[in-house]
Nucleic acid binder design. Structure first.
Lengths: 148, 148
DNA sequence: GGATAATTGTTACTCAAGATAACCATTATC
DNA sequence: GATAATGGTTATCTTGAGTAACAATTATCC
């Protein structure tokens, strides 16, 4: 039984999904332009973000968090290690490869952070704090529904 | 001069951006799983969406709309043409290559639409119509700010 | 306590989707 | 009519992801 209310919802949902897709690509483009100036890419940046905010992590942790497969993170770790931005920490296992930011990695993160913050403020200039908080809450809910 | 209010905003903005990135990837994964059942990918689907809702379009139109370069759309058009989902329409130019959905293309769109709608409803189940509409409005604003 | 299962990570290979650069036709403009 | 702009293509490269198969280590279960 389809009600008028549900019909409206389907249309809004369609529009929402389409907007999300259409928003993401130009957003990632702009982000990558900023990151390229620091010889970084989006995938590396998200790992730096995680390590900066959560201390250290294993490959499996990050791959779960980001919803990608393990080999993807293996490569990202390897590239960040090569750049000297991350290093290994002893885990409780011989299997575990626990990573954390190096001093240089933290410095780079903070440097790039300034650029990204400026970009964020530019993009979100018309958005109020309240809207942003609502937005974040909704996104978290959606993310949980996706992972189910 | 940084006020407390602005400091909060920066933190919200950081979180917002991170959530957007973290949301998008699993979302695209799930979407692609659905689309793969119909031998489609996200990039093709967005073109089908555009043509279904806007009638017909040139390569340049779509590349502007999606914020990607022309060669990307050349390939997407080519693959959709090969599948028999789109066809050329006469434009006002000999240069223009104006595309529209074929009968089959429209049928496929509508068929896939049902699957996608179900997915959308599942993901957005906790979100109200009002929140959705707010969300769409904010995303449109952000998209405009990005394109500047 | 030892066989089996699970976990952590890697390597090799493939693919989607995008970018850039250089180019050809065609149409506009000066 | 020469030059610039527009629409589109081709060739080549890169990022970032996936799958499959595997090795090493640790947990579990009989």
């Amino acid at each position: 039984m389809i009600t008028i209310q549900e019909v409206f919802s389907i249309q809004s949902a369609q529009k929402f999904f389409h907007q999300l897709i259409m928003l993401y690509r130009p957003f990632e483009n702009r982000l990558n332009v900023l990151l390229n100036k620091h010889n970084l890419h989006r995938a590396q940046w998200t790992v730096l973000y995680y390590l900066y905010n959560y201390g250290n992590a294993t490959l499996v942790e990050i791959s779960h968090y980001q919803g990608v497969e393990k080999p993807t993170i293996t490569r990202t770790f390897a590239s960040l290690e090569k750049l000297g931005y991350v290093e290994q920490v002893a885990g409780k296992d011989k299997r575990e490869k626990r990573m954390q930011l190096t001093k240089q990695g933290r410095a780079v993160y903070e440097e790039v952070r300034v650029t990204i913050d400026r970009f964020e403020m530019e993009i979100l200039q018309d958005t109020s704090e309240e809207e942003l908080i609502d937005f974040i809450r909704i996104m978290e809910g959606i993310k949980n529904n996706i992972k189910k």
